[in-house]
Write a protein that binds this DNA or RNA. Sequence first.
DNA 1: TATGAATGAGCCTTCATTCAT
DNA 2: GATGAATGAAGGCTCATTCAT
Lengths: 210, 210, 210, 210
Amino acid sequence: MPAMPPKRRTKARKQPLQQRSRETVAVILEAAARVLEARGLEGYNTNAVAERGGISVGSVYQYFPNKDALTLALITRFEDALLAKVRDAVAASEGKSLTASLNLIVRAQLEAHAERAGLNRILEAEEDRLRPASSGTSAAGELKELVADLLARHRREIARPVDDDAVEDLIVISRAMVDHALQNNLSQAAATRRVLRAIEGYLFGPRPDS
Amino acid sequence: MPAMPPKRRTKARKQPLQQRSRETVAVILEAAARVLEARGLEGYNTNAVAERGGISVGSVYQYFPNKDALTLALITRFEDALLAKVRDAVAASEGKSLTASLNLIVRAQLEAHAERAGLNRILEAEEDRLRPASSGTSAAGELKELVADLLARHRREIARPVDDDAVEDLIVISRAMVDHALQNNLSQAAATRRVLRAIEGYLFGPRPDS
Amino acid sequence: MPAMPPKRRTKARKQPLQQRSRETVAVILEAAARVLEARGLEGYNTNAVAERGGISVGSVYQYFPNKDALTLALITRFEDALLAKVRDAVAASEGKSLTASLNLIVRAQLEAHAERAGLNRILEAEEDRLRPASSGTSAAGELKELVADLLARHRREIARPVDDDAVEDLIVISRAMVDHALQNNLSQAAATRRVLRAIEGYLFGPRPDS
Amino acid sequence: MPAMPPKRRTKARKQPLQQRSRETVAVILEAAARVLEARGLEGYNTNAVAERGGISVGSVYQYFPNKDALTLALITRFEDALLAKVRDAVAASEGKSLTASLNLIVRAQLEAHAERAGLNRILEAEEDRLRPASSGTSAAGELKELVADLLARHRREIARPVDDDAVEDLIVISRAMVDHALQNNLSQAAATRRVLRAIEGYLFGPRPDS
DNA sequence: TATGAATGAGCCTTCATTCAT
DNA sequence: GATGAATGAAGGCTCATTCAT
């Protein structure tokens, strides 16, 4: 079992309360994103980020205690964006059929991932390394809730008991399918179809015997 | 779009034809595995590997042109082991029902991953970075074939057309579910049940309309 | 021979004539002292000092041209305090025997050093680095005078000629002994005894032959 | 009280058993010494040391885990040299009078310090910072023993009880006097005279009353 | 005057890789 | 083939100092 590296601060070093600060933080994040996109994890370093952002390294460290914290902030930004899209999709699916709702949600996910596919893939890979082993994010929590609520609303149409495990599995499956679709450059349509097929299989498939 | 890094040899520098050589390669691989397990990606470096293996760095470079090639060899070793287990499971499922066959295969997968869970997770994460974007491995190819054959044999019990996409999706889903199960330290039993549920949902679920 | 670093201002940038200014300077000095005590030379930096003092870095630079000047001010503050204590001791020893007088002075020194032992040790170490090689401070000068006067008053009881060298040596010896005593956490009583023993040995010892 | 900085390895990273290695270590130490002499603590950094030694930084870190360890090695080197000189002086003073013996020892000390006065002063200053607060070195221990033995041999000529405290005080006093002498560029003769005066005062002075 | 965000030179340290032995 | 000392590019990070507001 890998030894846990010595704890390091990974929270923001200073809350960007001032206007100027908030802008700088935004600049840093965007610069980091661009470096990651342009040069990959390989060429991603704080000096490059600073240069790209037209600021100094010192400024990066004014707001992020270390490189990992910066990456983590990027991950959070992505998660928040994803979550927002899903939230909207869920809201928009009020009154719609389960299939239609799922369709909306899957599209939302695909969009969120597709927007900056290269970047997001890298971030997802880094997440594993940076999160202390399944430390539930609030974002992850809310996603579960959203899905759970949707499923609950359509309980009767679903062939299996809708418990926490089901919600989790559904998220795992759709995330994997979405990633796979993007990796293979599937068209929006094909991607949606395949992801949906997987999800609906899970939901409407035969009630498990065991 | 990420700039392609300058091409580097990532194939083994020489085929270990001699007995002695083959042993050394094995030593190196095992040392690398152990370093990865003990210290994580963080503490994984060629000097540490050499030390752990009781050999010199120079020897590592005798058999692997660079660090990535070594990691890749480790990944291949894992994939081969997995494939072997799956192959056996498929062989053993001759004449059995589809459900029983899947059960065997899923167990095989779980076993392969569980054996050195920590190590394998790291390797899977590295795979993304090291494979030039979906460059089909022969191992991946054979896995597809195995699954395709099994499904073909039970075609009539399956609710959807058994095409390449279906095979791919099935692999994606089960891999994701297996990873997730291991990550959450599910028991063998629970893991098997949930992975199977997902797979069977996909196979026996309602025929897609579109 | 060490190259002389480029000359830098190390004097206070402006005389704190105004009441407010004087207060700010005091705040800065005390903040610096506390940082030094709490985090050592390692964690002693102008930003930390400003934060500790509840002011901005800019303000620190308003009153001190650079970090060294601040440290030097701290050293001076300590020296002044020491000198004041010694001056009082000398005044109080009017009419007393030499031994009694020395006792008072040694106690004064010990007190001054003990008050903030950790801080003062650091400052003494920094003094070496910051003073351009034995540039006599006025404080050092006055100390010499005080000691010289005391010795002159008791000339007849002393076994050796009381010249400048003797005064200097006496100061060197007692300073070293006091430092050593504090470093080893000797009790007031033990410390006083040993320091006095050293001093009296020097004064009352055999007249040097050469 | 200053917080103790996180423990770091300060022992040699690798024992220089091979001939080549031993040479490299010597090169590094001498380079470090020269950098310290030429540019002071200010310009003392591992890159400069490597450059000065005509080797690469990597080599420095092959033998010293960090900069402080290197400095510490330099300190030890100095202490060992000093000790060797004192040991010789003690040996040479066999059968001589106490005064003559002290004379030899003081000269030895002065020589050791004078040899590279600038360097040694810096090292002494760093010692405080680098040694975990009065962690008795073996060198310090042996010095005490040497002095104690000498004094014991001449017990009858000494005016005070020769206990551990006396030995310690004597060492403190002579070290302070030697440092002071070098700092003021006293001539060998003057320095010796003054240091001896201080020591003899301590030894032959009046028996303390208290 | 005060503020504190921004700067950026510079230092420590790591580690993949080489190559003389 | 093996060895392991040596290399040195590269990158994370700090902190004294400045200056626009």
